[in-house]
Design a protein around this nucleic acid. Sequence first.
DNA 1: GTGATATACATCGTATCACGAGGTATTATA
DNA 2: TATAATACCTCGTGATACGATGTATATCAC
Lengths: 106, 106
Amino acid sequence: MDIQLKRGLLDVCVLASIKDEDSYGYKIIKDMKPYLELSESTLYTILKRLENAKMLTVRTAEHEGRLRKYYHITEPGLKRIEEFKEDWKEIMAVYRFISKEDNVNE
Amino acid sequence: MDIQLKRGLLDVCVLASIKDEDSYGYKIIKDMKPYLELSESTLYTILKRLENAKMLTVRTAEHEGRLRKYYHITEPGLKRIEEFKEDWKEIMAVYRFISKEDNVNE
DNA sequence: GTGATATACATCGTATCACGAGGTATTATA
DNA sequence: TATAATACCTCGTGATACGATGTATATCAC
């Protein structure tokens, strides 16, 4: 997918990944993979940004000898997802503008 | 609309604006306005980028004493629009991932 | 006739951001 | 005992949207 298109989806997609259940870095990447692929460096940048924006909180827990950082969505994070859904109506209008054909049979 | 979301749409939207008929800067902004608002500085940056990528060609013509630069879409430009439509299938999958509800009644 | 608005183009600096390259450490597996 | 998988993190770079700013002409209101 075009990298510019990804930009608008990444943050919200990460939030969606932790919406139903707290998750951690490695798992988020695997869960998102069928929809959007992202590198670790990208993910940790995003997680840091979302934490700074108070859209999620972090807690560290040990799991089988390794430390994991679990991310939990907050109210502002949930709101961010809702805002995305609002934006979607505009996006669809843009899509129709872009994909409209001169030939009505197409 | 979220600026990151716009990023993925701007280039293709500009191409769509000149797809059916050659157009010029000021008109492109007005045509796009109902769908995506963009500033002049943004548009001219985009037009330059698309020209460098050979997705459009430029010709200068005089119109009522003022010079206008008319932009004409090329084959690669049309192909870019088709690629966007291909990407759209993935985008829709991402959208469904983001907007899915736990509660099936919602 | 003059000031404001619309038309029309352009450049520069800044802030944001995705990502590759690289790093550390442990556990599981071949 | 090496390799892969798990799990985290940082830094530098390139791409890019946009505000600020600049130039110039045409039109219109007062």
